[in-house]
Amino acid sequence: MPILTFVLRRLFHALPLLVCVIVFNFILIHLAPGDPIQALVGEFPAPEAYLAEMRKAFGLDQPLYIQLLLYIKNILSGDLGFSFYYRQPVLNVILDRLPATLQLMLPALVFSAAVGIFLGILSARKPYSLADNGISALSLFGYCVPAFWFGQMLMATFAIDLGWLPSQGIKTVGADLTGAAALLDRAAHLVLPFTALAIRHLAVNARMMRSSMLEVAYEDFVTVARAKGLHEKDVIAHHMVPNALMPVVTIIGVDVGFLFTGSVLVETVFGWPGIGRLMYESIVKRDYPVLMGNFLMTTALVVVVNLIVDLVYLWLDPRVKYQK
């Protein structure tokens, strides 16, 4: 029961944060130069009367604070607005794209966490050994390499030169695949964008886990565990890893937000039909409602994930108590 109260309280506390995000993004987007109506018109000097008519139709003629209040009011009634470009409710536009992003993001998140932690442990077991140096070099590369460039290199190598994998898209179009074949086809399309997206997070997790492991390696409880005559594997698995995991779990929570931003580039490069690309396109088109909806949803997701991270602390560390 205390956990439920804790969750509810946290969600309640997140509300002002969401309002701040909405207000901040709203102002930021509307202060940026560029006019959505002209973006729709294109390379042509539209007459003033026409621009005024269009601004009115989209509610852009109201003072900014009125637009903001109306927007918040609509959100409270579950209406995220209407897309200028797609002429559809924003929620539909986003929900059309969300599954593709999750399909890319979740495997990237799970993989980079699991493998990153594993590599970190491996590194920390024998610092400055060949394995550690190799993993460190790899991590450094993964951390530094820009996702869009790495994506294109992967494409050039594996799609063009070797011809092993499809270069872009989420599935083979035109082939009505079913069952295992369809699943394999999806997996083949996933490999390159997934790698481009996951590598940075994999690197961060590996580095983080390594340093965290090395930190606990000199704690008294580890010495005690060893002195008890425990097998090294047990020392690592039962004493070091649970304690070293805390900062890494925090990082993984933060990663969710970064995976969303990373997906903007990766999805654009790989023609992946997700919300990262939608975000990029709505910036170019100045499709304010879609952009705002995207920000709002991402924020909400990050809030929820952080809540989950806090709950994981509870599970990892019995000292953490969620009382008042």
Partner: peptide
């Protein structure tokens, strides 16, 4: 639908 010009070119090269 391929938004990135480089990717469109690659998709043409690979026959996609």
């Amino acid at each position: 639908i391929i938004p990135n010009a480089a990717t469109r070119a690659i998709a043409f090269e690979t026959g996609e």
